[in-house]
Structure formats: C-alpha cells, structure tokens
Write a protein that binds this DNA or RNA. Structure first.
Lengths: 135, 135
DNA sequence: TAACACTATGTAATAATATAACATTTATAA
DNA sequence: TTATAAATGTTATATTATTACATAGTGTTA
C-alpha cells in the first residue's frame, strides 16, 4: 500500500520519537548524555539507544548536530531538504544556536566550486559571534 | 628589543613546537591521542600537555581543528589571517582533508548578514564529497 | 501464514575524546 | 630582581561515543 509505505517512511520508531520530542521542545541544543538523563524515565537506559536514535534522526534531517558543540537541535527548515546543507549561528557568550535559512547562502554554497572545479554534495557551516542580547 | 619581541611572538614553546612539527609533517589530520602516542618519546606523556598545545596552536592560527572529525591539520594559508575564517573539503571515502582558500568564498562569508542584518566575526565551513581519486 | 530479511531495541562493557585541579618551572617585563 | 604571566608535569576524572552480542518487532513475499 502506497500510503502506508509513505506514512512509514515519515514515521519515527518509539525511541526516535521520544528523543526527537525532547530535542524539538528544547530551546537550546542538547548533548547526548543530557538527552540520556532526560529519557531514562521513559525507559531509555543506555548510550547506544540514544546514539542510534540520534544517528537516524540526523540521517532523516529531523535534527542536526552542531559539530563544534557536540550537541543536537531540531531542524526548523523543512527537514529533508536541508539535511545536507546546514548553516548555524552560534553566540559565543550565551551559546544560543540558530539555524540560518538564507536562499542566497545556500545557493552560493551549493554551487561553490573549488580550485579544481569540484562541487560538493554536502556542507556544514557554523558562524560565531555575539547574539543580539549579548552584544 | 623589538626584534626579539616579534620573534618571540612568532615562536612556539617546546611542546607547541614538537606538536606543531608532527601535525605539519602529517599528510592527514591527526587526532589528539594519535599525537600523544607519537610524542611520548619526546617526553610529552599526558593528555593535558597535548590539548594545551593544541589549544594555543589553534588560537595562533597555526593549526585548525576539523570539527566533524575531531582532528587537527596545519594551516597552509598564511596562518593568522584565516584562524577565524576556515573552510575545508573532506572526502567521505578516504577522509582526505584540504583547506580551501578562495577569495570569493571568504569574501562572501565574511560579509554574510543574517535575517537580522547581523554579521559574524568567525566561521568554519566543512564541505563533504568525494575527492578526485575516490570518484 | 510461514519464512525471511531488515530495522529497531536492550544491555554490558569499553574505547575515545577532553578537562579539572594542583604543584612546579620557565620566560617576560616592570 | 622581583613579580607576573605563560608553560609544563602529573594524577585523576569527566564527557562523548562505539563494539559486541542477544532479543524483539515490522514488513515483504513465497
């Protein structure tokens, strides 16, 4: 059944859903062990359970990893499209992280060619500075 | 003495020099514990010694951290200028990492303004794809 | 439905990455 | 030269992530 299939493709497993909900509700990026501590009451007890769900959610584009912080935030840019083209601003004082969605920026980077004329299939960009509040 | 001062500003401490030399000679990014194992014969015995030197070298712009790989490469772009504006290409098969130096790219990113008109003082960009050899 | 493959889960142990804390030494500058 | 800052040495520990293996659920298809 086509519709069932598609539904399944978009649906999350039990652990994935628990962990996604937590990240999605969080105003700030969450670290793997912070997640673990927060979902132990829901029966998720061990690191691999968390890391496995995180890996899948990243693959699906539902969340992104902030590499410089080893932390995860929910995607607020229509997931799938941007799983391979991510840009964030990070405040160096309060650590607030915001996903940047700029058509110009993504176009520029998607079309960027290096010296050898090579294009890339994926990128991650992290900007650092001070947010409005912290300036 | 002016000249002495300047020399000092550009000189590395003993541990910094040992660790920089190792990274600079390496054709690939090195991880902190790989560095540690490789410099134990030179008297550097413990992680803090390595991480402290790495921190300073990153500050100085002599090396860069590849965040998605937790590894370090020497800067080959005239250090200091680009310590706060870094871009790399990473091969997802062989893990070859190359520092990108593109005037166009750095200009674009240095001048990038987000929705709120905010500019950022620093950025790190990692492109992913397949290198020539691996394609 | 039975058999299969595939995905997800549970669990224990351990590996890999990074920092805290404190004592000491070396280098720099007033 | 003396005090200040920077770097070092050392032990211990914190944090982040994976391996390995056993079990259970889900979807497909013969």
């Amino acid at each position: 059944m086509r519709i069932g299939k598609i539904d399944k493709m978009h649906s999350l497993s039990k652990n994935q859903q628990i962990i996604f909900d937590l990240i999605d509700k969080s105003p700030e990026p969450l670290k793997a062990y912070t997640i673990l501590f927060n979902v132990q009451k829901k029966g998720i007890k061990a690191p691999p359970q968390v890391y496995r769900a995180l890996d899948k959610l990243v693959e699906m584009g539902k969340i992104h990893k902030i590499e410089s912080r080893n932390a995860f935030i929910a995607c607020h840019n229509s997931s799938c499209q941007v799983a391979k083209a991510t840009a964030f601003s990070i405040c160096e004082i309060c650590e607030k992280v915001t996903e940047i969605s700029s058509a110009g920026l993504s176009k520029y980077l998607a079309n960027f060619k290096d010296k050898d004329g090579m294009k890339y299939s994926k990128y991650n960009l992290e900007f650092f500075g001070l947010c409005k509040k912290c300036r």
